[in-house]
Design a binder for these strands. Structure first.
Length: 460
RNA sequence: GGCGCGGUGGCAGAGUGGCUAUGCAGCGGAUUGCAAAUCCGUGUACACCGGUUCGACUCCGGUCCGUGCCUCCA
């Protein structure tokens, strides 16, 4: 089945044609690790996790690289503010990021390169750019000369003149052109730095992704992604650096063929951002809600659309999962069908530029069908569809609260109340039975009468 | 100002030139001592104004509103 992706570079949906169908190569810009990731950051991780899952379903091998930016002025500022060493901060937040994303069902990338371990590759790349007259050293800095790359601006769709007209920042005096950007900058003694042909310094932001993508994937590779706000300047600059370093002055696809950008998470219609203070940390949310409910919420809108975040929406998606898990529980005695294949309609939805809302509607239809037919292949189709989305993989008893937390909890009191109510029912003492139900409700316990006798669970 | 995206039923959210999206919530019914679950039924939705068309929510033009990027940003 043909995968279609909206390619930001072409500004249209295109059929994905791999460079080498035997190894699909994907790069997504990862976090700068100086504090907790918010749910907007998590959206990118979940979206690209899904894209990689779909690619793995379609192709025999996928190499997914997503970096950790562990050298950055914001990290230095965080270190100053907290008094902690820089590497303590970056290690801490890298670990937390990976844990939090795992809680959202995000599989680890195949390779998670750190910027600080690729300084040599960055210096090599900068040297190439200097040799080819695309970059120049000035005042301890090395800058990329934007006018040397005529195709500049192709991704974000703005000419160089437009950028200058809109420039909000003061232009440093050492720049030849207002649009030029930093590849390397000097570090003072108390700042992290590496020896280079231009003295002790550290890389600018954009060069790391060019260097790491090239090292781990080779050029050109298939798909490069990230949040929509990275289109300009970050991705624009990556393209400029990588294409110019290799003499690809005209083909913007000389770096990556397809550019995929996810939309923002908003709050009350406004972009979630650290400066507005309207952000929700993934780390906090996973304390309060199941990761799967958060993941489903992130997938409930198409990835390129804005997603307005609210607790109500999480609850709604949790209820959807509750219903689906009830279906799975219902089908517990239906045999597995290991050789069953994923339904076409479901895969088609995801192959249409990751149309997750459509896919979710198919998922509901699959659940309904499986419930009706109780056929092994229908059950398998439901579970496989869930697996591709990264949901519905927990134990339904666990999810629904029937699993009572193993040996840790003593529930003899609840068992006694349930038994007493059952006895009252046998005696047709409805008043007493209802009173006991109320007591149990107060303990957050739901009792369900089934043909096999009463069952109870904690109200999740 | 430049470039872009969007306005769909109570809410969320796809999609299509003519045929039920779907989910959550609600309503009616079946079932149930009660409840839960399940099943059946149930909504004359596509910002506004023009145009094209046999027919537009879907295409074109305009208007209004919201929102994003324009070198911190997923």
């Amino acid at each position: 089945m043909a995968l279609q992706l909206y390619n930001s570079l072409a500004r249209e949906k295109q059929i994905f044609e791999p460079i080498n169908p035997d190894d699909i190569r994907v790069y997504a810009c990862g976090p700068t690790v100086y504090n907790y990731a918010h749910i907007g950051n998590a959206r990118m991780a979940v979206v690209f996790d899904l894209l990689v899952r779909v690619l793995r379903h379609l192709y025999p091998q996928v190499t997914y690289v997503s970096n950790i930016t562990d050298v950055d002025d914001k990290i230095m500022a965080a270190a100053r503010d907290s008094g902690e060493p820089i590497n303590a901060i970056t290690e801490k937040y890298t670990r937390i990021y990976n844990e939090d994303m795992a809680a959202l069902g995000v599989s680890a990338p195949d390779i998670q390169p750190h910027a600080t371990t690729h300084i040599g590759e960055m210096i090599d790349l900068i040297e190439k750019l200097v040799e080819r007259d695309h970059a120049y050293a000035a005042d301890g800095h090395v800058l990329f000369n934007v006018p040397s790359y005529p195709a500049y601006g192709g991704l974000s769709g703005r000419s160089r003149d437009e950028q200058i007209a809109g420039a909000r920042v003061e232009v440093a005096s050492y720049k030849k052109d207002a649009a030029d950007f930093v590849l390397w900058k000097p570090s003072s003694e108390d700042e992290p730095g590496w020896e280079s042909p231009w003295g002790r310094g550290r890389p600018g932001w954009h060069i790391e992704c060019s260097a790491m993508a090239e090292k781990h994937l080779g050029l050109p590779f298939d798909i490069h992604g990230g949040g929509a706000d990275l289109k300009f300047p970050h991705h624009e600059n990556e393209i400029a650096q990588s294409c110019c370093a290799h003499g690809e002055l005209h083909d913007q696809g000389g770096f990556a063929r397809y550019w995929v950008h996810n939309g923002f998470v908003t709050v009350d219609g406004e972009k979630m951002s650290k400066s507005l203070g309207n952000f929700k940390l993934a780390h906090d949310l996973i304390e309060d809600f199941p990761g799967e409910a958060l993941r489903l919420t992130l997938l409930s809108a198409h990835y390129r659309q804005p997603l307005d975040w609210s607790e109500d929406k999480i609850q709604q998606n949790k209820k959807t999962l509750d219903r689906l898990y009830k279906t799975v529980k219902d089908l517990a005695d239906v045999a597995d069908a290991p050789d069953a294949t994923l339904g076409d309609e479901f895969l088609q939805a995801l192959c249409d530029d990751l149309n997750t809302p459509k896919a979710l509607s198919v998922l509901s239809a699959l659940a309904k069908k499986a419930q009706e037919t109780r056929a092994p292949q229908d059950k398998a189709a439901l579970l496989q569809a869930g697996a591709l989305l990264g949901v519905l993989q927990s134990d339904p008893d666990e999810w629904l609260g029937y699993a009572k937390g193993g040996a840790s909890g003593d529930h003899s009191d609840i068992d006694a109340l349930v038994a007493a109510r059952h006895q009252a029912k046998q005696d047709k003492d409805w008043a007493k039975a209802d009173a006991l139900r109320d007591e149990l409700s107060a303990l957050n316990v739901v009792v369900e009468d089934t043909p096999e006798g009463p069952k109870w669970r904690f109200n999740a």
